Simulated scan of single mutants.
Amino acid sequence: MGNNQLMHSLKFVKKLHQKKYRDKTGLYLAEGKKIVEEALKLGLIEQIFITKENQREFFNASVIEEKTMKEISTMEIPPGVLAVVRKQVGLKLSDDKTLIVEDLRDPGNMGTIIRSAEAFGFAIGLLGNCVDPWNEKCVQASMGSIFRVSISFYTYEDLERLKDIKKIYATYLEKSFNPKDVKFSKNGILLIGSESHGLSERALNLSTDFLKIPMTGQVESLNAAIAASILMYMWNQ
């Protein structure tokens, strides 16, 4: 790659730090040897940038200086391997179980939920004002599951239509059932809100069944990732 072409590519990589360019291009960034290797196995890589110390690890990669890597990396301490990755389109991990998160803003929680969704065979749905699942912190927290899990966007109108043909289970503190006493339908949706606000009134009104995870001690709530993981596990029992 010539210097002019490399400089153009580096400028493009910096743009992918912003959601609007990730949305526009269908591309995002992944960093670290292991996670980039996973994307490479799936054929999702557009371009790889590495520092000299990682030169033996990847073929057909652009070798750049550590200073340049720090400029394009999204991490405080760059791992020295950065890739431009294509978003998966139309990927279906599960045709019958979907976890929909509403207004989830924490990227660590989002990434962990995506990882758990792969482990328990769920697709992911995004409702309301959620964090971009393809931002750098979500990608890192997903540990590569972002490459394999179906992620779709939902509206409240979508839920209105779906509740006539699917069970929609929502987490709610009042008039709720212990999940272990619920016989989950194969073709269903699990709704999770943020720990601080829970689900909106609108989302609750579109739900058909309500769940509450029993807890002891003085703990009043669990964060979204933990609650979602527990409920997805219990769904599969």
Rank of each mutant, 00 (worst) to 15 (best):
K52Q: 14
R86F: 10
V81S: 01
D96M: 02
Y172M: 03
R105Q: 13
S142N: 02
F153A: 11
G43V: 10
N135T: 01
C138D: 02
T208Y: 03
I48P: 00
E57M: 04
S152C: 04
Q88K: 14
N60I: 01
C138T: 12
F49K: 06
L29I: 14
L40W: 11
V101P: 03
V219L: 12
L44P: 00
C138H: 06
A61H: 08
E65W: 08
N223S: 03
H8T: 10
K33V: 14
D181Y: 15
L27Y: 15
L199P: 00
G111V: 11
I77T: 14
V131G: 06
N54L: 07
L104F: 09
I230P: 06
D96S: 09
A30I: 05
I114Y: 03
T112S: 14
T25C: 07
F59S: 14
K166H: 11
G193P: 07
L190W: 08
E102F: 09
P214G: 00
V219H: 06
G125K: 01
N205H: 10
A228D: 09
S196Y: 12
Y169R: 09
T155H: 05
R115E: 05
K186S: 12
T51C: 10
M232Q: 05
F49T: 01
E220P: 01
I50M: 02
I146L: 11
T112P: 04
